[in-house]
Design a binder for these strands. Sequence first.
DNA 1: TTGTATGCGTTATCAG
DNA 2: CTGATAACGCATACAA
Lengths: 359, 359
Amino acid sequence: MARSSTNKHPVGKAAGRRRGAGEAAAASGTVTLGMVAAAAGVSPSTVSRILNGTAVVSEDKRTAVDDAIARLGFVPNPVARGLAGGRTLSIGVVTQAIDSPFYGGALRGIEEQLGRAGYSPLFVSGHWNATEEARCIDTLRSRRVDGIIVLTGRLSDAALADCARHLPVVVTGRKLTAPGLYALHFDNFEGGRLATHHLLSQGHRQIAFISGEPRHPDAKERLRGYRAALEAAGLPFDPALVMPGNYTEDSGRMAVERLLDSRVAFTAAFAANDQMAYGAALALHRRHLHVPGDISLVGFDDLQSSVYTIPPLSTVHHPVFELGQQAAIAMLQLLAGETPTAQLPAPRFIVRESTRALS
Amino acid sequence: MARSSTNKHPVGKAAGRRRGAGEAAAASGTVTLGMVAAAAGVSPSTVSRILNGTAVVSEDKRTAVDDAIARLGFVPNPVARGLAGGRTLSIGVVTQAIDSPFYGGALRGIEEQLGRAGYSPLFVSGHWNATEEARCIDTLRSRRVDGIIVLTGRLSDAALADCARHLPVVVTGRKLTAPGLYALHFDNFEGGRLATHHLLSQGHRQIAFISGEPRHPDAKERLRGYRAALEAAGLPFDPALVMPGNYTEDSGRMAVERLLDSRVAFTAAFAANDQMAYGAALALHRRHLHVPGDISLVGFDDLQSSVYTIPPLSTVHHPVFELGQQAAIAMLQLLAGETPTAQLPAPRFIVRESTRALS
DNA sequence: TTGTATGCGTTATCAG
DNA sequence: CTGATAACGCATACAA
């Protein structure tokens, strides 16, 4: 506890500044490309070329350099690289909340794929706010990222397309075509249809729907899927069965309470995401309604924790990890001047224990 | 879908390179400090000084510069700053999994605090593997972060202390003193004691404990708290009641199954983290044991989702968000040459609905 | 208080 | 195939 103010790390450059270029800096631990060049008896340009594969170099020089690199433990400085070459080997990722249980998997997928290509992700959070997202993008651009991946968000398509005029952009959660931009889209309509269809196939006819915010494109699509399934089964759409939510647990809880209070009859409920399903389950529990005994419940997204809810939640699997991976791959392709072709797997409905056939 | 291969963003520097220093680059959108200086009729150093508050500048020049900055929309280039000044205004954060439901809150706290100081976090994942963590730190150092925050992890104290000789380091989850390093520690012992004490106060005498991995310092502490509470109540410690887990839901599930199979009697269970408690609850559910009717259950950490489990989980609140905030604040203080004093709030037990007095 | 000169570590241009 | 040389955009030591 009683540490004195050592002041070990003064802000700013450590001692040893202003030293000649060739001078050894063993003490400071910083091995530069120039030092490698000197040690290998070649010019800095040659070392740089070997590092980047920019041009063909004779075998002997190459081994000499490789040798020197290993001996000195040289590590290229991405900062200098960024300044001189214009690329930082880092990709900006605009997520909505760094601790989102939903996007978490996507971040992992991105991290994994970028990592194996030598790129680092730079995560920033937009908090579902177009203004903040725009600020995030400014930050990322000022940090000279080589490209930007945007996970859904509220930015306008136009803003995104504009951004793509400067930098490669990959965006998820929308359908959009623009130069320098690739959109990765999950079939939320089909997912909504699948979930509803499952309930229908179990004999349910009065299916409540807890929707996400209408501003969300995927929320609208999921609702559309619900309606399509109903229609296909020859059932009328009853607005009284639809309760608005906002993708949070609490909104799911409240939706069920309002549903119950409204006395509309239903034997099953479809929450437009798992988090709302959790809240819905709790509300039912509080009213002594048993899932699936009294009410069947399905969610959407298949969060990691949905395997461990009580009862385990039947839901539409959303391949977020793959989403992240594909987004990263698409970005890498954009960077390489290729045209991405990445595609997401089709939605699958996962049957667990929260639904039961109506007897 | 049918986008042609536009090749809009060739890897490497865009056109416009190698232009004279003073030359306007309006087209490319890059406004440099030098251009601001020219526009304001002062030298670059003056602009730099104003930007960094490095020295006192006359009022008229200052306004002229501020004006030019606003007019040209100048944004300093952190990359160049990093190269020239040796500081990148970015802080490396070694977490274990970018999608961890536990550390997520901490990342948010870090992001928030660093952001308001103009710093950006650079998140990397160590995956509970000392080797990977070491590699993470290498990556961060090569990217010239100004400091490193390590969230627990498996790195040795010595490795951390060594790292702190080059860079300021803040580490959570351990007690450790070293120059240039600040350790932020949560009282896991007290937390374990509190949880057990709650169960005891409800009349439970046979309390099973599902432990975390013994390699984890906090897992050991939580177990120690359990034992201390037992002892304080004059109860013997029964090893048969302790089941090893590894902090995952599934290990919690399996622990309960083994407990039940072993036929050891218990009326309550304390899982060393919420995730294991979720798994434990599911195992009990499968065996038709009701929580809290048949078995009382408590967790540790108070994850966001523990409010919405069925039943809502009684647990020890772990202030992860504050942990992240304090870690960031401590880092900022270290950077300023101050001695951090940040401290974490004491553990609190949150009573929800998963425990019941033994009748 | 302000300007000048220089260098941070790398890549890119251009001449050999 | 290789090596000078000049940027990249900024911060700092030093001079004025």
